[in-house]
Design a protein around this nucleic acid. Structure first.
Lengths: 236, 236
DNA sequence: AGTTCAAAACCTGTATGACAGCTTTTATTG
DNA sequence: CAATAAAAGCTGTCATACAGGTTTTGAACT
Protein backbone atom coordinates (compact mmCIF):
# COMPACT_ATOMS: atom_id res chain seq x y z
CA UNK A 1 0.00 0.00 0.00
CA UNK A 2 2.72 2.45 0.90
CA UNK A 3 1.37 5.99 0.48
CA UNK A 4 -2.36 6.07 0.96
CA UNK A 5 -4.13 8.91 -0.86
CA UNK A 6 -2.77 11.60 1.45
CA UNK A 7 -4.50 14.98 1.40
CA UNK A 8 -2.70 16.52 -1.51
CA UNK A 9 0.28 15.62 -3.58
CA UNK A 10 2.63 18.53 -3.21
CA UNK A 11 4.89 16.99 -0.61
CA UNK A 12 4.43 16.20 3.05
CA UNK A 13 5.51 19.64 4.16
CA UNK A 14 2.80 21.37 2.14
CA UNK A 15 0.25 19.03 3.64
CA UNK A 16 1.51 19.83 7.09
CA UNK A 17 1.29 23.55 6.39
CA UNK A 18 -2.28 23.04 5.28
CA UNK A 19 -3.08 21.02 8.36
CA UNK A 20 -1.68 23.67 10.66
CA UNK A 21 -3.50 26.57 9.02
CA UNK A 22 -6.64 24.45 9.06
CA UNK A 23 -6.10 23.89 12.77
CA UNK A 24 -5.90 27.63 13.30
CA UNK A 25 -9.04 28.21 11.27
CA UNK A 26 -11.11 25.44 12.78
CA UNK A 27 -10.22 26.24 16.36
CA UNK A 28 -10.64 29.93 15.70
CA UNK A 29 -7.26 30.76 17.14
CA UNK A 30 -6.14 34.36 17.34
CA UNK A 31 -2.80 36.11 17.84
CA UNK A 32 -0.98 34.72 20.86
CA UNK A 33 -2.84 31.42 20.99
CA UNK A 34 -0.65 28.36 21.23
CA UNK A 35 -0.32 25.65 18.64
CA UNK A 36 0.28 21.94 19.27
CA UNK A 37 3.85 20.83 19.82
CA UNK A 38 5.95 19.46 16.99
CA UNK A 39 5.79 16.01 18.51
CA UNK A 40 2.01 16.11 18.79
CA UNK A 41 1.55 17.23 15.19
CA UNK A 42 4.11 14.73 14.04
CA UNK A 43 2.06 11.96 15.62
CA UNK A 44 -1.28 13.29 14.43
CA UNK A 45 -0.18 13.66 10.82
CA UNK A 46 1.93 10.51 10.84
CA UNK A 47 5.01 12.28 9.56
CA UNK A 48 8.43 12.81 11.05
CA UNK A 49 9.23 15.74 13.28
CA UNK A 50 11.46 16.95 10.46
CA UNK A 51 8.46 17.58 8.25
CA UNK A 52 6.53 19.36 10.95
CA UNK A 53 9.51 21.55 11.72
CA UNK A 54 9.90 22.59 8.10
CA UNK A 55 6.20 23.41 7.99
CA UNK A 56 6.55 25.53 11.13
CA UNK A 57 9.55 27.32 9.67
CA UNK A 58 7.61 28.07 6.51
CA UNK A 59 4.74 29.54 8.44
CA UNK A 60 7.13 31.53 10.58
CA UNK A 61 8.81 32.90 7.45
CA UNK A 62 5.46 34.25 6.29
CA UNK A 63 4.92 35.55 9.80
CA UNK A 64 1.78 33.54 10.34
CA UNK A 65 3.21 32.09 13.53
CA UNK A 66 5.91 32.96 16.04
CA UNK A 67 8.55 30.49 17.16
CA UNK A 68 10.76 30.66 20.20
CA UNK A 69 12.89 28.10 21.89
CA UNK A 70 11.41 25.97 24.62
CA UNK A 71 7.97 27.48 24.10
CA UNK A 72 5.24 26.29 21.83
CA UNK A 73 4.56 28.08 18.55
CA UNK A 74 1.92 30.80 18.73
CA UNK A 75 -0.33 32.49 16.20
CA UNK A 76 1.30 35.73 15.08
CA UNK A 77 0.04 39.24 14.57
CA UNK A 78 -0.09 40.62 11.06
CA UNK A 79 3.32 41.94 10.27
CA UNK A 80 5.15 43.41 7.30
CA UNK A 81 8.38 41.45 7.76
CA UNK A 82 7.75 38.85 5.10
CA UNK A 83 6.43 41.35 2.60
CA UNK A 84 9.51 43.48 3.15
CA UNK A 85 11.73 40.60 2.15
CA UNK A 86 9.61 39.93 -0.90
CA UNK A 87 9.91 43.52 -2.05
CA UNK A 88 13.63 43.62 -1.42
CA UNK A 89 14.01 40.41 -3.36
CA UNK A 90 12.08 41.97 -6.22
CA UNK A 91 14.52 44.85 -6.28
CA UNK A 92 17.61 42.67 -5.92
CA UNK A 93 16.58 40.51 -8.84
CA UNK A 94 15.55 43.47 -10.94
CA UNK A 95 11.95 42.40 -11.22
CA UNK A 96 10.75 45.73 -9.86
CA UNK A 97 12.27 49.20 -9.77
CA UNK A 98 12.17 52.18 -7.49
CA UNK A 99 9.76 54.15 -9.61
CA UNK A 100 7.21 51.35 -9.42
CA UNK A 101 7.49 51.36 -5.67
CA UNK A 102 6.84 55.08 -5.56
CA UNK A 103 3.78 54.64 -7.73
CA UNK A 104 2.39 52.07 -5.32
CA UNK A 105 3.26 54.19 -2.32
CA UNK A 106 1.67 57.27 -3.80
CA UNK A 107 -1.48 55.40 -4.67
CA UNK A 108 -1.80 53.96 -1.20
CA UNK A 109 -0.60 56.86 0.87
CA UNK A 110 -2.89 59.39 -0.74
CA UNK A 111 -5.62 57.11 0.56
CA UNK A 112 -4.13 56.62 4.04
CA UNK A 113 -3.83 60.38 4.37
CA UNK A 114 -7.51 60.74 3.59
CA UNK A 115 -8.49 58.04 6.03
CA UNK A 116 -6.14 59.26 8.74
CA UNK A 117 -7.76 62.69 8.58
CA UNK A 118 -11.10 61.03 9.18
CA UNK A 119 -10.17 58.39 11.71
CA UNK A 120 -7.03 59.32 13.59
CA UNK A 121 -7.18 59.22 17.38
CA UNK A 122 -5.84 62.19 19.27
CA UNK A 123 -2.74 60.24 20.23
CA UNK A 124 -2.10 59.35 16.61
CA UNK A 125 -2.62 62.96 15.53
CA UNK A 126 -0.06 64.08 18.07
CA UNK A 127 2.43 61.39 17.06
CA UNK A 128 2.11 62.28 13.38
CA UNK A 129 2.71 65.94 14.07
CA UNK A 130 5.67 65.16 16.31
CA UNK A 131 7.34 63.10 13.62
CA UNK A 132 6.91 65.92 11.11
CA UNK A 133 8.33 68.45 13.52
CA UNK A 134 11.24 66.16 14.36
CA UNK A 135 12.19 66.29 10.69
CA UNK A 136 12.60 70.04 11.04
CA UNK A 137 14.38 69.88 14.36
CA UNK A 138 16.98 67.38 13.20
CA UNK A 139 17.61 69.04 9.88
CA UNK A 140 21.37 68.65 10.21
CA UNK A 141 21.20 64.93 10.92
CA UNK A 142 19.75 63.40 7.76
CA UNK A 143 19.76 59.96 9.36
CA UNK A 144 17.29 61.19 11.92
CA UNK A 145 15.25 63.11 9.40
CA UNK A 146 14.87 59.90 7.47
CA UNK A 147 13.75 57.87 10.46
CA UNK A 148 11.18 60.50 11.38
CA UNK A 149 10.01 60.58 7.78
CA UNK A 150 9.49 56.83 7.75
CA UNK A 151 7.79 56.86 11.13
CA UNK A 152 5.55 59.70 9.92
CA UNK A 153 4.29 57.74 6.93
CA UNK A 154 3.81 54.55 8.93
CA UNK A 155 1.91 56.32 11.67
CA UNK A 156 -0.45 57.77 9.08
CA UNK A 157 -1.01 54.30 7.69
CA UNK A 158 -1.78 53.04 11.17
CA UNK A 159 -4.17 55.90 11.74
CA UNK A 160 -6.08 54.81 8.65
CA UNK A 161 -7.25 51.91 10.82
CA UNK A 162 -6.71 49.47 8.01
CA UNK A 163 -3.92 47.01 8.88
CA UNK A 164 -3.44 46.07 5.24
CA UNK A 165 -2.40 49.62 4.42
CA UNK A 166 -0.08 49.60 7.41
CA UNK A 167 1.43 46.33 6.27
CA UNK A 168 2.09 47.56 2.75
CA UNK A 169 3.52 50.88 3.85
CA UNK A 170 5.68 49.05 6.39
CA UNK A 171 6.88 46.65 3.74
CA UNK A 172 8.43 49.49 1.77
CA UNK A 173 10.40 50.90 4.68
CA UNK A 174 13.44 48.73 4.12
CA UNK A 175 13.77 49.76 0.50
CA UNK A 176 13.02 53.36 1.34
CA UNK A 177 15.97 53.45 3.71
CA UNK A 178 18.14 52.76 0.69
CA UNK A 179 16.61 55.32 -1.64
CA UNK A 180 15.84 58.11 0.81
CA UNK A 181 19.38 59.51 0.95
CA UNK A 182 19.38 59.76 -2.82
CA UNK A 183 16.27 61.90 -2.76
CA UNK A 184 17.66 64.04 0.03
CA UNK A 185 20.92 64.73 -1.75
CA UNK A 186 19.26 65.28 -5.08
CA UNK A 187 17.26 68.29 -3.90
CA UNK A 188 19.25 71.16 -5.26
CA UNK A 189 19.41 73.30 -2.15
CA UNK A 190 18.70 73.44 1.55
CA UNK A 191 15.73 75.55 0.63
CA UNK A 192 14.20 72.64 -1.18
CA UNK A 193 14.98 70.35 1.71
CA UNK A 194 13.30 72.76 4.12
CA UNK A 195 10.33 72.89 1.78
CA UNK A 196 10.05 69.13 1.94
CA UNK A 197 9.97 69.23 5.72
CA UNK A 198 7.41 72.01 5.65
CA UNK A 199 5.23 69.90 3.42
CA UNK A 200 5.34 67.09 5.95
CA UNK A 201 4.23 69.48 8.67
CA UNK A 202 1.45 70.73 6.41
CA UNK A 203 0.21 67.17 5.86
CA UNK A 204 0.32 66.55 9.60
CA UNK A 205 -1.65 69.70 10.27
CA UNK A 206 -4.29 68.75 7.73
CA UNK A 207 -4.66 65.38 9.41
CA UNK A 208 -4.78 66.97 12.84
CA UNK A 209 -7.42 69.35 11.52
CA UNK A 210 -9.40 66.39 10.20
CA UNK A 211 -9.38 67.71 6.65
CA UNK A 212 -9.31 64.73 4.26
CA UNK A 213 -9.25 66.82 1.09
CA UNK A 214 -6.23 68.84 2.12
CA UNK A 215 -4.48 65.77 3.53
CA UNK A 216 -4.72 63.79 0.34
CA UNK A 217 -3.93 66.73 -1.89
CA UNK A 218 -0.79 67.56 0.07
CA UNK A 219 0.27 63.92 0.21
CA UNK A 220 -0.09 63.68 -3.56
CA UNK A 221 2.00 66.82 -3.93
CA UNK A 222 4.65 65.35 -1.64
CA UNK A 223 4.96 62.21 -3.74
CA UNK A 224 5.02 64.14 -6.99
CA UNK A 225 7.91 66.22 -5.71
CA UNK A 226 9.75 63.18 -4.36
CA UNK A 227 9.47 61.37 -7.64
CA UNK A 228 10.68 64.45 -9.45
CA UNK A 229 13.72 64.60 -7.17
CA UNK A 230 14.43 60.93 -7.68
CA UNK A 231 14.13 61.21 -11.43
CA UNK A 232 16.43 64.22 -11.39
CA UNK A 233 18.97 62.05 -9.60
CA UNK A 234 18.67 59.51 -12.40
CA UNK A 235 17.06 56.71 -10.40
CA UNK A 236 15.63 54.08 -12.74
CA UNK B 1 33.92 29.96 24.58
CA UNK B 2 31.42 27.71 22.83
CA UNK B 3 29.53 29.91 20.40
CA UNK B 4 31.85 32.41 18.80
CA UNK B 5 30.26 35.72 17.83
CA UNK B 6 28.46 34.34 14.77
CA UNK B 7 27.07 36.84 12.32
CA UNK B 8 23.90 37.63 14.17
CA UNK B 9 22.23 36.16 17.16
CA UNK B 10 18.81 35.26 15.92
CA UNK B 11 19.48 31.61 15.37
CA UNK B 12 21.45 29.72 12.80
CA UNK B 13 18.56 29.51 10.38
CA UNK B 14 18.17 33.28 10.23
CA UNK B 15 21.86 33.59 9.53
CA UNK B 16 21.57 31.07 6.76
CA UNK B 17 18.63 32.94 5.24
CA UNK B 18 20.70 36.09 5.32
CA UNK B 19 23.64 34.34 3.73
CA UNK B 20 21.52 32.97 0.92
CA UNK B 21 19.83 36.28 0.10
CA UNK B 22 23.24 37.91 0.24
CA UNK B 23 24.50 35.32 -2.20
CA UNK B 24 21.67 36.21 -4.57
CA UNK B 25 22.39 39.90 -4.24
CA UNK B 26 26.15 39.69 -4.57
CA UNK B 27 26.13 37.37 -7.54
CA UNK B 28 23.34 39.36 -9.13
CA UNK B 29 21.22 36.29 -9.68
CA UNK B 30 17.88 36.60 -11.43
CA UNK B 31 14.82 34.38 -11.76
CA UNK B 32 15.74 30.87 -12.83
CA UNK B 33 19.37 31.06 -11.74
CA UNK B 34 20.55 28.17 -9.61
CA UNK B 35 21.64 28.34 -6.02
CA UNK B 36 24.34 26.24 -4.36
CA UNK B 37 23.32 22.82 -3.11
CA UNK B 38 22.33 22.24 0.49
CA UNK B 39 25.52 20.33 1.10
CA UNK B 40 27.68 23.12 -0.31
CA UNK B 41 25.99 25.79 1.78
CA UNK B 42 26.10 23.55 4.79
CA UNK B 43 29.86 23.29 4.42
CA UNK B 44 30.38 26.96 3.64
CA UNK B 45 28.37 28.16 6.63
CA UNK B 46 29.57 25.41 8.93
CA UNK B 47 26.11 24.35 9.93
CA UNK B 48 24.21 21.14 9.48
CA UNK B 49 22.22 20.40 6.41
CA UNK B 50 19.14 20.62 8.62
CA UNK B 51 19.71 24.32 9.16
CA UNK B 52 20.26 25.00 5.48
CA UNK B 53 17.13 23.10 4.60
CA UNK B 54 15.02 25.08 7.03
CA UNK B 55 16.44 28.26 5.55
CA UNK B 56 15.57 27.07 2.05
CA UNK B 57 12.07 26.18 3.16
CA UNK B 58 11.63 29.62 4.65
CA UNK B 59 12.71 31.32 1.46
CA UNK B 60 10.47 29.04 -0.56
CA UNK B 61 7.54 29.90 1.70
CA UNK B 62 8.05 33.58 0.87
CA UNK B 63 8.42 32.57 -2.78
CA UNK B 64 11.89 33.99 -3.08
CA UNK B 65 13.18 30.66 -4.37
CA UNK B 66 11.73 27.56 -5.98
CA UNK B 67 12.48 24.06 -4.74
CA UNK B 68 11.99 20.78 -6.54
CA UNK B 69 13.28 17.33 -5.85
CA UNK B 70 16.55 16.26 -7.34
CA UNK B 71 17.19 19.73 -8.78
CA UNK B 72 18.98 22.62 -7.17
CA UNK B 73 16.98 25.53 -5.76
CA UNK B 74 16.46 28.41 -8.17
CA UNK B 75 15.69 32.08 -7.77
CA UNK B 76 11.95 32.59 -8.14
CA UNK B 77 9.81 35.05 -9.99
CA UNK B 78 7.77 37.52 -7.99
CA UNK B 79 4.58 35.79 -7.03
CA UNK B 80 1.53 36.47 -4.92
CA UNK B 81 1.36 33.08 -3.26
CA UNK B 82 2.89 34.07 0.04
CA UNK B 83 0.96 37.30 0.27
CA UNK B 84 -2.25 35.40 -0.38
CA UNK B 85 -1.59 33.21 2.63
CA UNK B 86 -0.80 36.24 4.75
CA UNK B 87 -4.08 37.88 3.81
CA UNK B 88 -6.06 34.72 4.40
CA UNK B 89 -4.41 34.34 7.76
CA UNK B 90 -5.38 37.91 8.59
CA UNK B 91 -8.99 37.09 7.82
CA UNK B 92 -8.95 33.76 9.66
CA UNK B 93 -7.60 35.37 12.79
CA UNK B 94 -9.94 38.32 12.54
CA UNK B 95 -7.18 40.85 12.22
CA UNK B 96 -8.63 42.21 9.01
CA UNK B 97 -12.12 42.19 7.54
CA UNK B 98 -13.65 42.08 4.11
CA UNK B 99 -14.46 45.77 3.98
CA UNK B 100 -10.82 46.65 4.56
CA UNK B 101 -9.83 44.41 1.70
CA UNK B 102 -12.29 46.15 -0.58
CA UNK B 103 -10.90 49.51 0.41
CA UNK B 104 -7.41 48.39 -0.53
CA UNK B 105 -8.60 46.84 -3.75
CA UNK B 106 -10.53 49.93 -4.73
CA UNK B 107 -7.59 52.17 -4.01
CA UNK B 108 -5.25 50.05 -6.07
CA UNK B 109 -7.50 49.03 -8.88
CA UNK B 110 -8.65 52.54 -9.69
CA UNK B 111 -4.99 53.14 -10.32
CA UNK B 112 -4.36 49.96 -12.31
CA UNK B 113 -7.33 50.85 -14.51
CA UNK B 114 -5.76 54.23 -15.22
CA UNK B 115 -2.39 52.73 -15.99
CA UNK B 116 -3.82 49.90 -18.04
CA UNK B 117 -5.59 52.41 -20.28
CA UNK B 118 -2.26 54.09 -20.88
CA UNK B 119 0.02 51.10 -21.15
CA UNK B 120 -1.89 47.99 -22.16
CA UNK B 121 -0.56 46.04 -25.12
CA UNK B 122 -3.00 45.00 -27.80
CA UNK B 123 -2.95 41.44 -26.55
CA UNK B 124 -3.73 42.59 -23.05
CA UNK B 125 -6.54 44.80 -24.30
CA UNK B 126 -8.05 41.86 -26.12
CA UNK B 127 -7.70 39.55 -23.11
CA UNK B 128 -9.35 42.08 -20.79
CA UNK B 129 -12.27 42.54 -23.15
CA UNK B 130 -12.64 38.79 -23.57
CA UNK B 131 -12.82 38.23 -19.82
CA UNK B 132 -15.52 40.88 -19.51
CA UNK B 133 -17.51 39.37 -22.34
CA UNK B 134 -17.14 35.89 -20.88
CA UNK B 135 -18.91 37.18 -17.78
CA UNK B 136 -21.91 37.97 -19.95
CA UNK B 137 -21.75 34.77 -21.92
CA UNK B 138 -21.64 32.53 -18.87
CA UNK B 139 -24.30 34.40 -16.97
CA UNK B 140 -25.99 31.19 -15.88
CA UNK B 141 -22.83 29.64 -14.48
CA UNK B 142 -21.83 31.92 -11.59
CA UNK B 143 -18.71 29.87 -10.99
CA UNK B 144 -17.47 30.83 -14.44
CA UNK B 145 -18.58 34.41 -14.13
CA UNK B 146 -16.49 34.63 -10.98
CA UNK B 147 -13.39 33.19 -12.57
CA UNK B 148 -13.67 35.58 -15.50
CA UNK B 149 -14.20 38.43 -13.08
CA UNK B 150 -11.04 37.56 -11.17
CA UNK B 151 -9.06 37.07 -14.37
CA UNK B 152 -10.36 40.41 -15.64
CA UNK B 153 -9.06 42.32 -12.63
CA UNK B 154 -5.75 40.50 -12.61
CA UNK B 155 -5.20 41.11 -16.30
CA UNK B 156 -5.77 44.82 -15.78
CA UNK B 157 -3.21 44.80 -12.98
CA UNK B 158 -0.73 43.09 -15.27
CA UNK B 159 -1.43 45.60 -18.00
CA UNK B 160 -0.46 48.37 -15.56
CA UNK B 161 3.08 47.09 -16.09
CA UNK B 162 3.79 47.33 -12.38
CA UNK B 163 4.37 43.87 -10.89
CA UNK B 164 3.70 45.11 -7.38
CA UNK B 165 0.14 46.00 -8.31
CA UNK B 166 -0.23 42.61 -9.95
CA UNK B 167 1.08 40.93 -6.83
CA UNK B 168 -1.31 42.73 -4.52
CA UNK B 169 -4.34 42.19 -6.75
CA UNK B 170 -3.37 38.53 -7.09
CA UNK B 171 -3.01 38.20 -3.35
CA UNK B 172 -6.67 39.05 -2.85
CA UNK B 173 -7.95 36.47 -5.29
CA UNK B 174 -8.16 33.68 -2.75
CA UNK B 175 -10.26 35.71 -0.38
CA UNK B 176 -12.34 37.10 -3.22
CA UNK B 177 -13.34 33.57 -4.21
CA UNK B 178 -14.96 33.30 -0.80
CA UNK B 179 -16.77 36.62 -0.83
CA UNK B 180 -17.72 36.84 -4.49
CA UNK B 181 -20.75 34.53 -4.27
CA UNK B 182 -22.10 36.65 -1.44
CA UNK B 183 -21.98 39.73 -3.58
CA UNK B 184 -23.54 37.91 -6.52
CA UNK B 185 -26.45 36.60 -4.46
CA UNK B 186 -26.95 39.85 -2.65
CA UNK B 187 -27.80 41.79 -5.83
CA UNK B 188 -31.54 41.99 -5.71
CA UNK B 189 -32.31 40.93 -9.28
CA UNK B 190 -30.86 39.54 -12.44
CA UNK B 191 -31.12 43.05 -13.78
CA UNK B 192 -28.56 44.20 -11.25
CA UNK B 193 -26.34 41.26 -12.05
CA UNK B 194 -26.50 42.08 -15.75
CA UNK B 195 -25.67 45.68 -14.89
CA UNK B 196 -22.57 44.51 -13.07
CA UNK B 197 -21.43 42.58 -16.12
CA UNK B 198 -22.17 45.55 -18.36
CA UNK B 199 -20.01 47.68 -16.13
CA UNK B 200 -17.13 45.28 -16.57
CA UNK B 201 -17.51 45.49 -20.32
CA UNK B 202 -17.59 49.28 -20.08
CA UNK B 203 -14.35 49.29 -18.11
CA UNK B 204 -12.78 46.99 -20.66
CA UNK B 205 -13.88 49.24 -23.50
CA UNK B 206 -12.45 52.30 -21.81
CA UNK B 207 -9.13 50.51 -21.42
CA UNK B 208 -9.23 49.31 -25.01
CA UNK B 209 -9.97 52.89 -26.07
CA UNK B 210 -7.01 54.10 -24.03
CA UNK B 211 -9.12 56.44 -21.94
CA UNK B 212 -7.60 56.64 -18.44
CA UNK B 213 -10.23 59.01 -17.05
CA UNK B 214 -13.15 56.84 -18.04
CA UNK B 215 -11.36 53.69 -16.95
CA UNK B 216 -10.67 54.88 -13.45
CA UNK B 217 -14.08 56.49 -13.05
CA UNK B 218 -15.86 53.32 -14.07
CA UNK B 219 -13.62 51.16 -11.90
CA UNK B 220 -14.39 53.38 -8.92
CA UNK B 221 -18.07 53.06 -9.66
CA UNK B 222 -17.74 49.27 -9.88
CA UNK B 223 -16.16 49.09 -6.44
CA UNK B 224 -18.66 51.44 -4.91
CA UNK B 225 -21.48 49.26 -6.15
CA UNK B 226 -19.78 46.06 -5.01
CA UNK B 227 -19.23 47.42 -1.53
CA UNK B 228 -22.83 48.52 -1.40
CA UNK B 229 -23.97 45.00 -2.36
CA UNK B 230 -21.69 43.46 0.24
CA UNK B 231 -22.91 45.79 2.95
CA UNK B 232 -26.48 45.05 1.98
CA UNK B 233 -25.69 41.38 2.53
CA UNK B 234 -24.44 42.22 6.00
CA UNK B 235 -20.78 41.44 5.45
CA UNK B 236 -18.69 42.83 8.27
C1' DA C 1 34.86 14.45 -34.23
C1' DG C 2 30.24 13.86 -33.03
C1' DT C 3 26.23 11.32 -31.17
C1' DT C 4 23.91 8.07 -28.13
C1' DC C 5 23.14 6.01 -24.05
C1' DA C 6 23.98 3.88 -19.72
C1' DA C 7 26.40 4.23 -15.45
C1' DA C 8 28.03 7.10 -11.87
C1' DA C 9 27.76 11.06 -9.13
C1' DC C 10 24.97 14.40 -7.19
C1' DC C 11 20.89 16.19 -5.13
C1' DT C 12 16.58 16.69 -2.53
C1' DG C 13 12.74 14.62 0.58
C1' DT C 14 11.91 12.16 4.57
C1' DA C 15 12.89 9.41 8.78
C1' DT C 16 15.31 8.31 13.15
C1' DG C 17 17.86 9.10 17.15
C1' DA C 18 20.49 12.05 20.19
C1' DC C 19 21.46 15.85 23.22
C1' DA C 20 21.79 20.80 24.99
C1' DG C 21 19.33 24.32 26.88
C1' DC C 22 15.05 26.68 27.79
C1' DT C 23 10.03 26.59 29.73
C1' DT C 24 6.10 24.69 31.93
C1' DT C 25 4.09 21.53 35.01
C1' DT C 26 4.18 18.78 39.02
C1' DA C 27 5.34 17.53 43.44
C1' DT C 28 7.35 18.54 47.73
C1' DT C 29 8.26 21.08 51.60
C1' DG C 30 7.86 24.68 54.97
C1' DC D 1 -1.46 27.85 51.07
C1' DA D 2 2.82 29.68 49.23
C1' DA D 3 7.43 28.95 47.79
C1' DT D 4 10.56 26.14 45.56
C1' DA D 5 12.85 22.33 43.64
C1' DA D 6 12.46 18.37 40.65
C1' DA D 7 10.53 16.40 36.61
C1' DA D 8 8.59 16.50 32.28
C1' DG D 9 7.97 18.77 27.97
C1' DC D 10 9.61 21.50 24.18
C1' DT D 11 12.55 23.56 20.62
C1' DG D 12 17.25 24.07 18.15
C1' DT D 13 20.84 21.69 16.13
C1' DC D 14 23.56 17.77 14.65
C1' DA D 15 24.71 13.22 12.40
C1' DT D 16 23.37 9.46 9.66
C1' DA D 17 20.72 6.80 6.42
C1' DC D 18 18.24 5.79 2.33
C1' DA D 19 14.75 6.26 -1.55
C1' DG D 20 14.09 8.23 -5.64
C1' DG D 21 14.73 12.13 -8.69
C1' DT D 22 18.44 14.80 -11.94
C1' DT D 23 22.77 16.05 -13.91
C1' DT D 24 27.25 14.81 -15.31
C1' DT D 25 30.58 11.59 -16.98
C1' DG D 26 32.42 8.43 -19.88
C1' DA D 27 32.36 4.75 -22.97
C1' DA D 28 30.85 2.78 -27.09
C1' DC D 29 29.62 3.44 -31.63
C1' DT D 30 29.05 5.87 -35.97
Amino acid sequence: MATFPEVGNAGLVSNAIGAITAHIRMNELGPGDRLPSEAALSKELSVSRTVVREAFRSLAAMRLIDLSVGKRATVAQLDHGAMSLMIEHGIDTEQINVQQIYDVRRTIEVRTATLAALRRSNDEARAILEHAEAMRTNFDAPERVMESDLAFHLEIARASKNPIFAMIVGAFQGVSRQTWPIGWRSRSSDNERHAMNDLHVAIAEAIVAGDPQASSQLMAQHFDESVKALLAAGVA
